[in-house]
Design a protein around this nucleic acid. Structure first.
Lengths: 214, 214
DNA sequence: CGCATCTTTGAAACTTATCAATCAGAGTGG
DNA sequence: CCACTCTGATTGATAAGTTTCAAAGATGCG
């Protein structure tokens, strides 16, 4: 079964037996989302959680036409689990930012697995612990850092081998800044020779400087 | 045993058997903290978590002399559980803001209980889910709200029967503002006749207006 | 009652947002 | 292969919101 393979790729679910996976799968629902389509809104009651099998999703809040990205998930990942756990409404929006294949797991199937398998519960808790950590760091960034250091740490966080593909608009939404400000900070980093830019690819030229600015 | 009673007051731990509680207690360590004393720092490895039996604690981040409160806990509550779970360093500072009695539970005892009792695990997860929700809302507030609406929603959140004791400095630290700004916003709310102030007690005069400003 | 602490208020400075215009690059159709 | 358009990035000028610094005013505690 193709679905089972996808589920096994999720670290959280890999220890499940085939029987357990089948049970989850039989209750689950796979759906395809185009870039820009909404997966859930804060109006929706959380009747289950979502496995991102393919694609990219952003979780975000809005208020007065402003937007703040809480987190971006790339495959493989899952999201909506906290709200699904409490069974209340989602606290935020979820939207595909790339064409995405997403499996929906209803609350019941999910909870029953958790009850059966203490190992999964522990893994699950460690995932939630990591989410908490992530949000704590986001709060620190939003509240204590200047625009320049936000951008510097964004680059450090997302870079791989000193390179990253940079979308000004997306970074702005994550960092709680405007695209103009992000662009300006980028120029500053260029003039400080901390980075180089070509098209939308950024190369880190001076890691230490970036870390000092962070 | 006095300690057991205190533990039973924590909703999370109430379903534990006496044997389980004894096991936890025997490994635990109770300590008294004065207002202002540090409980843990981001340097400390999380070897366990803390039960707040009596008093009040703030969890916060600092950077360049600035401070952002992540959360304030009043008895009965527990904290440090996410970091303790992963076993890494704490992501933030914890400091008593009132004289506090705190029980420390080592990681091992805690994990073994979780493994034994799936019911506790579930409760635990629901607590963590709530923490995630709380942080999500904090992020929204920090990033999307104006100073005035931060203060308005702070009042709404903390008021009881239209009243609350307000400490400007504490509110500022929670809201990511300076005390001066908070004070100014309070004056504005007074002049709008949304609230009244006497000493450090605030009375809500116009709930609807506050909600509109929120 | 007096001292220390917290709050309020004012003026100036700073950071970031906003608005507007220009520029660069990718893809499209002639 | 070259305009052409569309989208996203950059830059500049200005505005708004919040912080900072300083001083004066309340408040509470010993």
């Amino acid at each position: 079964m193709q679905g089972r393979e996808a589920l096994k790729k999720i670290p959280l679910l890999s220890p499940l037996t085939d029987a357990q996976l089948s049970k989850i799968l039989s209750a689950s629902l796979e759906k395809l989302y185009n870039a820009g389509s909404v997966i859930f809104t804060p109006e929706d009651r959380a009747e289950g959680f979502y496995i991102l099998k393919e694609g990219k999703v952003k979780i975000f809040k809005t208020q007065r036409g402003k937007e703040q990205i809480i987190r971006i998930f790339s495959e493989p990942a899952f999201f909506g689990e906290a709200a699904s756990f409490t069974g209340c409404k989602f606290p935020a929006w979820a939207e595909a930012i790339e064409k995405s294949k997403i499996i929906f797991i209803p609350r019941k199937a999910f909870i029953s697995i958790l009850k059966e398998d203490p190992d999964i519960s522990l893994k699950f808790m460690s995932v939630m612990a990591n989410r908490l950590l992530y949000l704590t760091n986001l709060i620190e960034s939003l509240s204590l850092k200047s625009a320049l250091s936000k951008v510097a740490s964004y680059i450090l966080r997302n870079q791989k081998n000193g390179k990253l593909i940079f979308k000004t608009n997306l970074a702005a939404l994550e960092l709680g800044l405007t695209k103009e400000t992000v662009s300006r900070m980028l120029s500053k980093l260029k003039s400080l020779e901390a980075i180089e830019k070509e098209g939308n690819t950024i190369k880190v030229k001076n890691f230490q400087l970036l870390r000092e600015l962070e």
